[in-house]
Computed example of a mutant assay.
Amino acid sequence: MRLKSTLDQWLTLYEIDRAGSFQAAAIVLNKSHTTLIYSVKKLESQLGITLIEVKGRRAVLTEDGKSLLRRATTMLEQARELENISKQLSKGFESEITIAVDHLCDLAWLYKPMEQYVNINGATSVQVVETSLTKTTDMVINERADISIINLPVTNYSAEAFGVITMVPIVAATHPLALKNIVSLTEISTLPQIVIRDLGYEPTKKHQQDVGWLKSRQRITVDNFTHAFQAVEQGVGFCRIPEHMVRDRNKTQVVVLEVEHAQKYQVPMHLTLPKGAKTGPAAKAFYDILLQSASHRRKQY
């Protein structure tokens, strides 16, 4: 289907409406006012309706003109966005980047900076992949991510400090141990311990990686902390959970235990660029924003 109108004609109508006259719009568009008058008259002829009425020195859109321009404005914004995206792609910006984020990380540290990033880069889509244990390392050493948020630095890969996660033990608020001021390791060892599965574990290729105190008589292994929370809330057992996740949940459902000699431990988070010098400009730009946000967080505390 051949279109009767052009983007340039709608842009002319837009600028006339914004400026209030043909003369003022002509200055903005760097064209003569007679060229603009001809463009509008041609558009009216093509569409078979009147778009502008001249009242005194002002050019005023008709009701039909206003109705069509509201729709055309969206089209003009999309055209500008296409040009901006084309400009970014011409500079070598990747059409897509992959961010690997360790499951312990506070996701606000990722998505708040991402809000800033997508506002300045409309050309690049972002894939976010959750990792844990061996998968966290695998995403780095096999260069499966453009940016990785990891815990301990991976050998021979540079890393920058990103934050610290505090792990705390929780049980259901209805559990008998929730009423005790201090709980011993012996007492919690009698409870089933809910642990998170190593997302990179493949029985035929590598050994499963374990972290932390795992001496409970029984383990319940789940895929993620969402499952772990639900298991704890239902009274299945206890689990060590990132403190920020506990703050975000319904605190009436769980209680943080005071465990003798094992109350809490901390896990450092780091940023790394798995592809090193091969990292593209879009990934580098987001990496810089993430670092800036981490620096800002440290200054607040």
Rank of each mutant, 00 (worst) to 15 (best):
I85K: 15
E233V: 09
A19D: 02
Q292E: 14
L69E: 00
L11T: 03
T74G: 10
L185W: 00
L69P: 01
T134A: 10
F229C: 00
V128K: 06
S45P: 02
I16P: 11
C105Q: 09
T174F: 01
E77Q: 14
I27L: 12
V222S: 02
T50H: 08
R57C: 01
G92D: 01
E260L: 13
T35C: 10
E130Y: 11
K42F: 04
T186A: 01
T98N: 07
R197P: 04
T252L: 12
R217S: 11
A277K: 13
R197L: 13
G65F: 03
S95W: 03
C105M: 13
R217V: 12
V236Y: 13
M1G: 14
I37V: 13
L43P: 10
M1R: 09
L7W: 05
V259C: 02
S125T: 12
R240T: 11
A277Q: 10
T134W: 06
L68H: 01
L7H: 08
E63Y: 04
S158Q: 14
S45A: 15
L3Y: 09
S216G: 15
K66Y: 05
N156M: 12
E202K: 15
V246E: 01
T35R: 15
S45H: 13
V154S: 04
N84M: 13
Q23M: 08
D223L: 12
D138H: 15
S184Q: 07
M75I: 15
D146P: 08
W213K: 01
V222F: 07
S132N: 01
I188W: 00
G65N: 05
Q230R: 12
L179G: 02
A25R: 05
G20I: 05
D17T: 09
P176C: 09
G20N: 06
T252K: 14
I147L: 07
R249P: 01
I52A: 08
Y301A: 03
L133V: 05
N30M: 11
S32D: 15
V154W: 02
A277H: 06
L290S: 04
I27P: 00
K205T: 12
I97L: 08
T137Q: 12
S148A: 15
V195G: 01
N84L: 14
L61F: 05
A24P: 03
A173D: 02
T279Y: 03
G56A: 08
K4Q: 12
I150W: 07
I196R: 00
E94I: 08
L110I: 11
T34D: 12
I16N: 06
I120W: 01
L271C: 10
T186D: 03
